[in-house]
Design a protein around this nucleic acid. Sequence first.
RNA 1: GCGGGUGUAGCUUAGCCCGGUUCAAAGCGCCUUCCUGUCACGAAGGAGAUCGCCAGUUCGAAUCUGGUCACCCGCG
Length: 397
Amino acid sequence: MKFEITKKSKKSGGRLGVIKTAHGELHTPAFFPVATKATIKTLTSQDIKEIGFEGILANTYHLHLQPGEKIVKKMGGLHKFMDWNGVVATDSGGFQVFSLGAGIAHKTSKIPSHNSDDRRNCVKKNNSGALGSAGFVKITEEGVYFKSHLDGSKQFLSPESSIKIQQDLGADIIFAFDQPASPLDSYQETENAMLRTHRWATRCLVANEKLKMKNEKISQGLFGIMQGGKYEKLRKQSAKFIGEIDFDGFGIGGSFGSSYGDSKTNLIKALSWVMPLLPQEKPRHLLGIGHLDDLVPAIKAGVDLFDCVYPTRMARHNVAITSLGNIDISKTIFSQDKKPLDPKCTCPTCKNYTRAYLCHLFRAKETTGPRLLTYHNLWFFKQFIDNIRQKVENNKI
RNA sequence: GCGGGUGUAGCUUAGCCCGGUUCAAAGCGCCUUCCUGUCACGAAGGAGAUCGCCAGUUCGAAUCUGGUCACCCGCG
């Protein structure tokens, strides 16, 4: 994997670039649609190509549990497996171990706190201080023990195993195995998670080098991940530490979810602390972001890559992201609306179908509804990002 | 005409036999809000029924009794 910056904005920290991989080029800033289990839910790889995306992001955690990286490898790797000839990135599983392994059993998608009293969004701390009220997640220096959300079986992931799995999956861009902190965590807990993430980062790099030496064909890029939560000192410390390691790129981690009030300002502040400390010539990936209004400030701050379930998940939950704002297409007011979803959009969904039809599909729980809306939302995101890229090109941003 | 059954939120029903913290519950539908390194087809709230109608028994009835109306099933 190679990264080349082709343009720097004169007006901000925004830049254009191209990532070259064994599976084609990726023009940045770019947004990865999320293909957790080797599919963008409801769409085909051909759809994604048609929409124009050059890369997608799949997930180590999910694919390790099902079908298992051995099968994917046997089937020729993720690209061949899912008939996708563009770029594939895989998340390391660090985040999912915490958000799913521990959180899902408590009906929350948020990272549980280590100690908070907020029982709506977290799980209790057990005696050993690890996450999980029933031992769902146990962190050791070696790695993390957790229970599969599929069958409850005991699982283990470490920096080394995560890297190995990601190599077996055959992604072009892989991420270091990290320990995210919850926004509810104290300074001390956030620092501990960050320090462990740093130690694990080094191990990930070593593991990756070892595997590369065994197989020279491997050309994956490895991204290190920074943590530090909402604390300026920690964020800067993490950026400095991770930034000095010879990774191919960097991921900005943590949870900036909207459940925590001032997440927007937290996000922008965190970027302002971290960006100046990272090597300019390497790509930066803002993990798990974002909403449309997160993209512009992040790109101005110098972010090159994004991934987020937002457009695809919202589509499955009735919401179209349009030039008019978010539209819940299942609402009664659209049941006899002959207009297209978004009058300004040129996607097949908007060109061919009425709001009334889409409304009906959702009410009738027909799977074509989520499909048409997912297609539209991703199309909209693609246009949106292309537009920003154009503005950076013209020094307007 | 006779016998039997049913009638509770927009819909489908629970409760009725052993009347009073169920004068009201659930699912669906409806309305609102939410979803940011994904648990596909979700989460959280909310509105909505004087329990067919009338009368009685009782301190008290959706729950018991009588009448009445509507619908359903048998027999004529």
